[in-house]
Design a protein around this nucleic acid. Sequence first.
DNA 1: GGCGGAATAC
DNA 2: GTATTCCGCC
Length: 356
Amino acid sequence: MERQRQRRCGVVRGASVSRECEAGSNMDCSCVSDLLFAPPALPALWTPGFAFPDWAYKPESSPGSRQIQLWHFILELLQKEEYQGVIAWQGDYGEFVIKDPDEVARLWGIRKCKPHMNYDKLSRALRYYYNKRILHKTKGKRFTYKFNFSKVVLVNYPLLDVAAATTGSPLLLTPGPFGGAPGPDAPPLTPETLQTLFSAPRLGEPGARAPLFTPETDKLRLDSPFPFLGSGATGYSKPPGLLAAPASLPTTLLPNPLASSLGHLPSAGAGGGPTATPLLAATGEGLGPERPAGLAVAQRLALPGAGGPEAALGGKEDSDSELEITDVSGCSSDSDGDEGLPVPPKAKAGKGGVGS
DNA sequence: GGCGGAATAC
DNA sequence: GTATTCCGCC
């Protein structure tokens, strides 16, 4: 019974919205995307200020979806200082807090031309990421979620095979294993594996590295929370079960964008020190953070929280303007004139300019 | 606030 | 496949 009502409303509203958006200005939405994801095309020299390379934000790069995905959008906002008042990295690695749910929802709504977007709906979309292991909820903390960067990176970084080519290993990264029925805790990659993937011939254990890619293991189960972490190749038997620290990825070993990309990931706030960087971030959720000694070699990255955001800024000014969501008049004109202007909190000066 | 089912749209 | 919309439940 109630379904009737909801369905009716949903259809009517949704239809009208879509129609308005498209009819009013099909390009309007695009303009926003342009603003947000202008592709400078700098695969080899990605600015350290970005959490992910541009390709990660390209619709065509999103598997199964030609539209910008929510988590892409979230990442984008997270990497912009302008939006630290509404959303920002917080605490553990990959953990972020939505300081202004309404604002984030509004921005997302603008991006998707969904004027009626709100946090309730946005959060539902985020919840769908739980099963996909892209996101986790940080229990006990309001509006706080945590990225599973291993998943994110793997899904959007198929070129890992490049590293395979470098190492000569017949590597084949496919999300298949966890496509339909992801195991409860599939055995993740070992740090060494990652190192191999990233063509890092030398690291913690120059000669201790064991061949991770056997003919039988042409497919790596990377769906695990955080393959980057864990103990040594052999010592790693306990599945993280949770998120781990993206920052644990050895920047110096990463051959391309990924390095700088991950280099901008959040720090533990206090553990940004070169020698104090906690490798495991899943500390909060019942995970026994065991620090792999072999990984302690390359751990320090340019962390926004650790050394200050500015520290990681390379050509940020440019990318800055790229994300500036200030001109969505087209998209907003159809129904969201007032909200249509998601000026960064910075500009709004009343809202959340919370300098975090 | 947060979760997840269900229907629906794209 | 992903996201939106709505809802009941905790």
